[in-house]
């Protein structure tokens, strides 16, 4: 199984708009991706409710997991997304 551990860069943490962007990106991957905080249970990254319920704030380290062909590419792109401050990008849009 491949894993990536990354700290949430978005100012508001992994909820609201950052969570929506992440969940959508996770659902668009070819492999199912799971996400957990520390040693907590891994939950589907494509589930908005499950991702919100992690309660991951700014700076919280999360671990992404996936199996099979394409897993590494999927994890790389999702980890890169979480390492960006998606709230700041929202402000830039406005």
């Amino acid at each position: 199984m491949s894993t990536r551990t990354v700290a949430i860069a978005s100012r508001t943490g992994l909820h609201a708009r950052p969570a929506a962007l992440f969940v959508k990106a996770a659902a668009d991957q070819d492999v199912p991706v799971r996400i957990r905080v520390g040693d907590g249970p891994a939950v589907p990254a494509a589930s908005m409710l499950a991702v919100l319920s992690l309660g991951a704030g700014h700076g919280t380290e999360v671990t992404l997991e996936a199996d099979g062909p394409g897993a590494d590419a999927a994890l790389d792109s999702l980890a890169a997304l979480l390492a960006r401050d998606l709230d700041a990008e929202e402000a830039a849009d406005a």
């Binding site: 609201a16 708009r17 969940v23 494509a46 589930s47 908005m48 409710l49 499950a50």
Partner: peptide
């Protein structure tokens, strides 16, 4: 538009959630 659009999109994603 704007914030309302973000809120409603997030709600639509929740309704589509496989966990539900």
């Amino acid at each position: 538009t704007g914030e309302a659009r973000d809120i409603l999109s997030a709600q639509a994603m929740i309704a589509a959630d496989p966990t539900l």
